[in-house]
Write a protein that binds this DNA or RNA. Sequence first.
DNA 1: CCATCAACAGACATCGGTGTCCGTTGTTTT
DNA 2: AAAACAACGGACACCGATGTCTGTTGATGG
Lengths: 149, 149
Amino acid sequence: MLFNHTAEYAFRAMAILAGEYDAGERVRAKELAQLAAIPEHYISKVMRHLVVAGLVEALRGHGGGFRLARPPSAITFMEVLDASDWSSEDRRCAFGFGACNPKNPCSLHNTWSQLHGCVNQWARQTTLAEVRSLEHLHAELASQAAPKD
Amino acid sequence: MLFNHTAEYAFRAMAILAGEYDAGERVRAKELAQLAAIPEHYISKVMRHLVVAGLVEALRGHGGGFRLARPPSAITFMEVLDASDWSSEDRRCAFGFGACNPKNPCSLHNTWSQLHGCVNQWARQTTLAEVRSLEHLHAELASQAAPKD
DNA sequence: CCATCAACAGACATCGGTGTCCGTTGTTTT
DNA sequence: AAAACAACGGACACCGATGTCTGTTGATGG
């Protein structure tokens, strides 16, 4: 529910790439699949969407791999969703009885709008900069044994 | 995305039943299927879940049909989700890299929590009382155009 | 008691998302 | 130029959610 597997994979892959962005390193598909827990033979399709959408740069051949096309702070979760899956179909009033639009709302339209607005706002405002790489997280936990929260 | 078909059907069916609640009328499956735009032969399964969960009362035989087991204001959307689909699987950190829990959060955990909290709050606070039946809506629109009664 | 109604229950078919496989294309190294 | 590398691209298999069909059970009316 909420997101399908493909979108989830995309988020995880982007999170890894965001962690590597400062180092400027490219990450190969096989490596990325392991780090992000994505089926090794499926990641190809996931990444393709992200590359076509212009969120990720791909380079073939020796030394090739994937890299964010922009700084993490310039990539919103909405863009990742758009790239991977969220078709316009998914944005319609999920409760719509047949034809449902703001001018002729169905009986669930208002309720739906509240939820949809909430999710939309989250997706638009959250960027990959919010993500902390596993490396950073582990390093932090290791260096300071006291949690903050 | 967000919700699957079964959950959507459940919401629509409950919306119809909520509109009929005051009248005390039972609605037959075939009728309900047409009103809520649910495949006629599939509605049986959808309703079964809602009946088992105790949200809907079913009566067989002549004059039978479905009816809300409680007033619309006493049924939250979360209950409908629980009844139809939302397994505990769906509540885990959707971005989780393998084992992910509050004590050992993944790099996407915080971000996920924000969205999850938002959706949870919506589902818990919204009840079927928020729903306006098509009848009421149509009646209102009609009365605005040509008031009578 | 019988006929009718309508929910119940499960077997089966279908479809789309997911996952696998393999050959192709483009890049780098030797 | 050849070989190694790694993303690209499509064909195909798989599986669970969805949808269909048919018979059964329980309730009501005559």
